[in-house]
């Protein structure tokens, strides 16, 4: 795990994986993917980072406590459901907004926010577990 090659190449892999995870998460509504898979990919990236440079390094790179990220995910997932209160419809009724940005139309919706919440929960929880185990001393 401590090889020079791995340590050098790891940040690159991690960066690519993180970008890929976001891509997978966002395309999930129409193609294979989604918050669960994206979150797992991102968590694997954090595990790799932790293995290459140590858990402390990975935590510093993350800057926020991973469990706090998970909490934030649950929070925005719940919040996305609450938004339907403003339209007078039952909890978690989806709302769609289409943003016109020049030539393209970007669809935004509460299910997307929800999926991002799922992404954060899975990413945060599993990174937290993986990093905690990596940082653990032997018995």
């Amino acid at each position: 795990m401590n090889s020079l090659i791995f340590r050098t190449i790891a940040p690159l892999i991690v960066a690519v994986m993180l970008v890929f995870s976001i891509y997978v998460c966002l395309r999930g509504h129409n193609e294979p993917g989604g918050g669960f898979i994206g979150g797992l990919i991102a968590a694997s990236a954090m595990a790799i980072l932790g293995m290459s440079g140590g858990a402390g390094e990975a935590r510093r790179a993350l800057r926020i406590d991973p469990l706090a990220i998970a909490g934030f995910g649950v929070f925005i997932a719940g919040l996305s459901g609450l938004l339907s209160l403003f339209t007078g419809t039952p909890f978690m009724t989806s709302i769609w907004v289409y943003l016109e940005l020049g030539q393209t139309t970007v669809p935004l919706s509460t299910p997307m926010v929800f999926d991002i919440g799922v992404y954060f929960v899975v990413f945060g929880t599993i990174s937290a577990v993986a990093l905690a185990l990596e940082g653990e001393e032997g018995p």
């Binding site: 999930g28 509504h29 978690m92 299910p111 999926d115």
Partner: peptide, 19 residues
């Protein structure tokens, strides 16, 4: 408005379960 039916079920139809 979703083409991936599994994902639509997860985040929309059964979103409460997923929460």
């Amino acid at each position: 408005h979703g083409h991936n039916i599994v994902n639509v079920i997860l985040v929309d139809y059964r979103g409460f379960d997923t929460l």
